[in-house]
Write a protein that binds this DNA or RNA. Structure first.
Lengths: 208, 208
DNA sequence: CGCACGGGCGACCAGCGGACGGTGAGCAC
DNA sequence: GTGCTCACCGTCCGCTGGTCGCCCGTGCG
């Protein structure tokens, strides 16, 4: 389970040393950008200079552990105790050496992690499907929105309640786009219910 | 119960019209600063150009109602729903005509309101005592800290838990000074417990 | 009336949550 | 080697929560 950690640290180095970083002191000893993600099935090791989705989700677990550390320190000091992954937590992660964790990345994929938490079977099916079709990560990421909205429907489209219902998810801010999608879907459902009730509430035939 | 509202609106006016506001358009038709608070007992009407503490606490109830309005609107629109009295709520209150509500004032007296919520008997006793001694509002306000810390002791000095335990109090941010006082008191209690356990844990005699 | 007191609240600040798109890594050919 | 695709994350922005102290309302002598 810790294999991804190794993948992060013990990678190759020094491919292009002759073209960049002219002048000044030493540097370029750390990887400057993480390998891009590719769509992988659970347990699958990413081929080439890529990272798999297991590694992506593992990053969310690491952030949770950093949050727990920050909370412990805050309580000891009698300071405000964060309940969510805040800037402070990202700063702490960086200071702890996890410089491969950053806010824009983690926020970008929150709804994908949400699906992973809320409906693992659906998450796995989606990963397999998009891997087979050789879709890129951006397409998979987009496709993660709707299954989460479907889960939210069972909570009256209250996406905050959905996030709060799951202990590993509740520490993440609800992404704006996901919130908006739930709102639109709730409005659509309300409109459909209203138009069907006008016709008497029976089986929904077309009515204008 | 709504008498204080009247007191806010139908007050006198135009005492000093000749000295200020030279030049420019009309104005000076609203009271520009609220009358200062004085220490009063429950039910007591403040004499002179002063406001009593019942009115202060009523302001906290009004803020709660404004928060509930803001929450309702946010849920209808599918936007983030605040759980605390935020800048947005103060803005809403001002737009709704309650221009006598402002953030610095409400934050200033939160711990006084906390005592009023958590231990009404102690709050009343303190008001009576400070009124008799003709103490000013600043002195009464300072004196409100310790009784709240005493309440917090029963929660292991977890002041956030104290605030969250009370529905009308939980919508207010814990003031920094109150949090610090609870932290100091917890440290003192822990130190006292440690030094007494060194001597065997019996009745606490002086030990150096 | 004029002065001294004291507190109301305008206005400021560091840092927040949130967003975007330019580099530049990466792979296919 | 070459080109071109695409996503990582540096960096920005409107505000937030939190605070301070100036200004002036107020009561007293």
């Amino acid at each position: 389970n810790m294999v991804w950690m190794d993948d992060v640290d013990d990678d190759d180095e020094g491919e292009e040393d002759d073209d960049q970083n002219g002048g000044g002191g030493g540097g370029g000893n750390e990887r400057q950008r993480e390998h891009p993600f590719i769509v992988t099935e659970p347990g699958e090791v990413a081929r080439g200079k890529k990272n798999g989705l297991d590694y992506l989700f593992y990053l969310y677990e690491q952030c949770r552990e950093f949050l727990i550390q920050v909370q412990k320190i805050a309580k000891e000091r009698g300071e405000k105790c964060p309940t969510k992954v805040t800037n402070q937590v990202f700063r702490y992660a960086k200071a702890a050496g996890a410089n491969y964790i950053n806010k824009p990345k983690m926020r970008h994929y929150v709804h994908c992690y949400a699906l992973h938490c809320l409906d693992e079977a659906a998450s796995i099916a989606l990963r397999r499907s998009f891997k087979e079709r050789r879709e890129n990560v951006g397409a998979w990421r987009q496709a993660c929105y709707n299954p989460v909205v479907v889960v939210a429907a069972a909570y009256g489209w209250d996406i905050d309640a959905v996030f709060n219902s799951h202990p590993r998810l509740s520490i993440w801010y609800v992404p704006t786009k996901l919130r908006q999608l739930c709102h639109v879907e709730r409005s659509n459902a309300a409109a459909a219910a209203a138009s069907s009730s006008v016709t008497g509430g029976g089986p929904d035939h077309l009515s204008f």
